[in-house]
Simulated assay, not measured.
Amino acid sequence: MMDLPERQRLILKEIVDRYIRFHEPVSSRMILEDYGLEVSSATVRNDMNDLEEAGFIAKPYSSSGRVPSKLGYQFFVEWLLDLSELSREERVEIVEAYEMQQLDVEHTIKQTAFLLGNMTGCAGFVIPPRPAETKLERVVLFKVAHQLAFLLIVTDIGIVEHGYVTLEENLGPEEIARIMTLINETLRGIHLADVRSLSLEDGPDGWYERPVRQAMFVLRRLLQNRMRQSVQFDGLLNLADALQEVVPEHAMEHFSHLNHAVQDEAAFIEAISQARMDREDIVASIGDFPLNGMETFSVISCTYKPHAGVLGVIGPLWMDYGRALSTASYIANRLESLLSPSHLRPMEE
């Protein structure tokens, strides 16, 4: 943690905490009245002057109290990293939100982004596990109508895609089951990127049959849609409300810049990579997230396994860091347990 005298560390924590809760400049009198420090007001003012000179706090107006700077928020987040945790009720709420019979990865990612935004009052985001590193567990193929079958792709993290296969022949259940078994025995455990580029010229007996080739064509087309890494956002409008409450004169401008920045998903993913620099722990980018338009926002991010997914929270500089850190960390752990191969439940075929 940043090197400061103990009393100044305490005063700085109280300034940041009070500003986050009440969104108003903090004076030396407020510090003394609210937190009962056994020192004089002159001592507190001197400490606040030192903190201002060091760049941890600033005075927005000549006659006002102090507000935290980006450096002050960074100090506060470092202090919180070892302290924050959710209440039992909040943990139960997250667990219940994830209850399902078979893990649909797309639905789970959307649910996770919603939970992050809803529980923090900010914007949640989730970058799914890297598609190219995901392995095929099995495909499920079953007949739904005359000359029409339904194809479900299940990977080592759950269901990732599904679609219909048009068959030129009216195949019976046994023939459908044989095709499914042939594909699974041949492709199970192969990375999705390799399945997508697999040649139909190399395969076991029966690999060249028309129904198998039709199923493989649909399988590869569905996987093509999954190869591009994406981002799921939820709760961006929460930030519009937060900005309007604290900085109404700049709210529309800041929100417009943010909204424009997150439209480019590839640029956002690259910025996350730059901010994290391959770290596996939780990372707080406070006013220095490397993406144009996000200079007035903070980004909390952490990874989850398998296959290097990332999730987190976007909020204003004055967001509740304790809640954001604890929520992101706990949800990442829950999502990781859900996506682990051992959690994948059997499914009737």
Rank of each mutant, 00 (worst) to 15 (best):
G206K: 12
H191R: 13
M180L: 01
L192V: 13
N184W: 08
L222V: 07
L182N: 01
I183T: 01
V218C: 09
A177R: 08
V195F: 03
P173Y: 03
A215K: 01
A193Y: 12
M216V: 15
E201M: 10
I179E: 00
L192P: 04
A193G: 04
T186Y: 10
G206Y: 07
G203Q: 03
L222C: 09
G189H: 10
V218I: 15
S199K: 04
I179Y: 03
L182P: 02
P211K: 06
I176L: 04
A193V: 14
L187K: 03
R210F: 02
A215Y: 01
Y208C: 05
L219D: 04
T181M: 07
S197D: 08
R196A: 11
T186N: 10
E185L: 13
L192K: 04
A215H: 00
L192Y: 02
A177N: 03
I190W: 05
P211A: 06
L200E: 05
G203A: 07
R220Y: 11
V212S: 07
E175L: 06
M216A: 05
V218H: 09
W207Q: 06
R220E: 10
S199L: 03
L198G: 05
V195I: 15
E185P: 00
I183S: 01
M180C: 14
S197N: 10
E185G: 07
I190L: 11
V195S: 03
I183H: 03
R220N: 12
T186S: 14
R210C: 02
G189Q: 11
R221T: 13
R210A: 14
L187P: 00
D194S: 15
H191C: 04
N184F: 08
W207I: 11
W207T: 04
L222N: 05
A215M: 02
D202W: 13
L192N: 03
